[in-house]
């Protein structure tokens, strides 16, 4: 198991290294190159040359890459130009990260807590009203684009019915103490219950919007997996042993059905950033997704660089966690 984790971590380093090369190549292929990217198009040739020398752009490519890598390893990705001008690019990412973690976490908890039980129920009652209803609902969940779902939620619950805040993470004028940057958690840690409640209200709509697709996918995979497992010979063996329905369901059916579901959850977490970009934009929720959208639109390349590499690292880490979870559930992987 430990060897497995170490091997996967080494693989991860290779992946991130390759990606850093791609990011480097991408940066150099920008119109006008990084100098224009950093200084903008309208600059005097003297200033361009000075910056080129300063950035080492007059040196051979491999040398440039190594220097880029060296700076990157020290956390130096340059300075944000647009998202938060003058701020260190890495710091911009770190400032935005807690918001997105909080949002993604709540969204995934929602998706899992609803998707798995509903998927199981639908499979047990195949062809029933519950089953058909849930299948149609999940189809809609998958088919409707996230930004549209987000927009609809915002329009009805926030604008029309005035039940929840329209945007942002916290009401203006609220003075809350910050510890982790995850507002709900902060409110709980500091016992500022009004702040926690305020943060929760701001979180509900974006989290629901972000949860729709993972929910729909987890629901469908769970349903299909349970249906498959119910047909397995070992379930019939369990029945032949006279085991109680409860034991058969929990020990024999659910556990085996979880194998494909775990993989799916991993993939959905990996894909969450795409949804976060759209959701955070619609709700002006100041997280990584919102930063990514802004950085992309306003050509804030230093920030983009950080975000892309960070997304890759997170993606690979999540995959590692999924593989570990998989090995824990499935002994065929753990024991050769």
């Amino acid at each position: 198991m430990i060897r497995f984790v170490v091997r996967r971590l080494l693989q991860m380093c290779v992946v991130v290294l390759v990606l850093s090369m791609l990011v480097f190549a991408w940066l150099r292929s920008l119109p006008g190159g990084p100098v224009s990217a950093i200084l903008g198009e309208r600059q005097t040739p003297e200033r361009r040359a000075a910056l080129e020398a300063a950035l080492g752009l007059d040196q051979p490519l491999p040398v440039q890459y190594l220097k880029f890598l060296e700076r990157a390893l020290q956390g130096n990705f340059g300075v944000s130009t647009k998202v938060l001008p003058g701020e260190d690019a890495l710091q911009v990412f770190l400032d935005r990260l807690p918001a997105t973690i909080e949002l993604s976490f709540v969204a995934m908890v929602l998706a899992i807590a609803l998707g798995i039980p509903l998927g199981y129920l639908a499979a047990r009652r195949r062809g029933s009203v519950i089953d058909n209803g849930a299948v149609i609902f999940s189809l809609v969940g998958i088919a409707v684009p996230v930004f549209f779902t987000a927009f609809l939620l915002k329009y009805f619950f926030a604008v029309e019915w005035n039940l929840l805040p329209v945007s942002g993470r916290q009401s203006t004028g609220l003075d809350a103490t910050r510890i982790t940057g995850m507002f709900v958690l902060d409110g709980i840690l500091t016992r500022e219950w009004d702040a926690a409640w305020d943060a929760i209200k701001h979180l509900i709509l974006p989290a629901v919007a972000l949860a729709t697709i993972p929910f729909a996918v987890i629901f469908r995979i769970t349903r299909a997996a349970v249906l498959d497992v119910l047909d397995e010979d070992y379930v019939r063996t369990a029945e032949a042993k006279g085991l109680t329905t409860r034991v058969i369901r929990a020990r024999h059916v659910l556990r085996n059905a979880m194998l494909p579901v775990v993989t799916t959850i991993g993939l959905q977490i990996g894909g969450l950033l795409a949804g976060a970009v759209l959701t955070e934009t619609v709700f002006s929720f100041r997280g990584v997704g919102d930063a990514l959208a802004t950085a992309f639109r306003d050509k804030d390349y230093p920030v983009l660089q950080v975000l892309i590499l960070a997304a890759a690292v997170i993606y690979v880490l999540v995959n590692l966690l999924v593989d570990i979870a998989y090995a824990v559930i499935d002994p065929r992987i753990r024991t050769r």
Partner: peptide
């Protein structure tokens, strides 16, 4: 259910698929 496994037991054709792969 009370009788199955206690008074009447059954074994099946394919031993691999008849055993739960994730339980000892």
């Amino acid at each position: 259910r009370d009788r199955r496994g206690a008074e009447i037991a059954m074994i099946f054709q394919d031993p691999l698929s008849s055993l739960n792969p994730v339980i000892t």
